[in-house]
Amino acid sequence: MKKLINKPEDVVRDTLLGMAGAYPDLLNVDVEQQIIVRKDAPVKNKVGLVSGGGSGHEPMHGGYVGYGMLDAACPGAIFTSPVPDQMLAATRAVNGGAGVLHIIKNYTGDVMNFEMAAELGAGEGIEVVSVVTNDDVAVQDSLYTAGRRGVGVTVLLEKIVGGLAETGAPLKQVAELAHKVNSQGRSMGMALTSSTVPAAGKPTFELGEDEMEIGIGIHGEPGRRREKLANAAEITEILTNPVVDDLGLKAGDEVLALVNGMGGTPLIELYIVFNELQRILKGKSISISRSLVGNYITSLEMAGCSITLVRLDEQLTKYWDAPVQTPALRWGR
């Protein structure tokens, strides 16, 4: 195992200290509580947005804390859910009097712990609503979930919903938009290599030199199948068609397209995948009107990619385009 770390047990702590030093103008980082909060939180009369999950998926979620996205993030240990105390501390920190929305990826530990935190917050008089993302079309159930996994749509949802929350919209309206984004987005990913959790010191799984895993999860969970390595055009077809079919996209639809790297794939290869994606969608008369290409929800150093499509309408496009200022996403401000 070769990694730029000190001790495996200090990885999250050292990362938080690094983020605090790198973005003092954007973030307040509480290393003891293990939460990341936007600098101006709580914002009076604004719905607070809180998300979180295991570390190892950077820049998600801490990289999306700031104006126009999340108000706070709770990083757990690598690939391990944060605990309810963290989530409650984050909920308190962003409560500006308009309530708090918890954005939860559909992993059993995350869902259970956020539910406990919401109950504790309600006991303190904080109105909390939860939205669970479940956009992965690869498998119905996995090692970590009951139902579909929450993956790439989570990032896009945080941006779109964050744009609405900045307008002072009420909690009910913010939650309704979150549900809408989740319902209009789907994802599928693949892996060329495994990742290595520092505490384990060895790869999570083994792939042969001529193999790839289709439908992989962001924690190294198995996917739909393992098969022989293919070229970028074939891989993009394998990932795109189930997403298009599951979402029911048709000629004339416009989408927000995310080609996401899993941590170990260079940008030059991700642009090749995006080129293939736009070719495929053009052939179906589906337009990509907004896009992101890069590492946005990773799995440590795993090589591979995922594709996420969200069906756009005027409302979703408006709040996607709204200003944002976070460590990982910045435009319009």
Rank of each mutant, 00 (worst) to 15 (best):
N182R: 14
A322F: 08
K2I: 07
R224D: 09
N134K: 13
L316A: 01
T15S: 12
A138G: 06
E213F: 12
L17Y: 06
G76N: 00
P203K: 13
W320R: 07
M188Q: 11
M60I: 08
L4A: 13
G261W: 10
E221Q: 11
S142W: 02
F79E: 00
M69D: 01
L267Y: 13
K284V: 07
M112E: 02
L177G: 00
P327I: 13
V293S: 09
A233N: 13
M112K: 05
L312W: 08
A165M: 07
V11L: 10
R290Q: 13
L177I: 05
N182W: 02
L49N: 02
L277W: 09
E32L: 10
H102V: 03
V255K: 03
I216Y: 09
R290H: 14
R311G: 00
D135A: 09
I218L: 12
H57A: 04
A93Q: 00
G56L: 07
T193K: 04
G220T: 06
G201Q: 08
G189C: 15
N6M: 12
E124R: 11
E32T: 14
N95H: 14
G123F: 06
S195A: 15
G304Q: 10
V12L: 14
P266W: 08
P24V: 09
V310E: 03
P75Q: 00
D141R: 08
R92M: 01
T308D: 08
V181S: 01
N106Y: 01
D30T: 09
G21N: 14
V259M: 14
L239T: 05
A118H: 04
L156F: 06
V161K: 13
L88H: 12
E127N: 15
V65G: 00
I218G: 01
S299M: 04
G18L: 07
G18H: 07
G248N: 12
D25K: 15
G150Q: 06
T298E: 03
G248E: 04
M19R: 05
K39N: 12
V65M: 07
N6G: 11
N95F: 11
A122D: 05
A90G: 00
E119L: 08
H219F: 07
K105F: 12
G96D: 01
G53I: 01
K250L: 10
P327T: 09
E115D: 15
R149T: 02
A322C: 04
M212C: 09
T145E: 03
L17A: 10
G109C: 03
A322W: 04
R13T: 14
G109A: 03
V29Q: 10
G56S: 07
E314P: 07
R186L: 08
L177K: 04
M1W: 06
E119S: 05
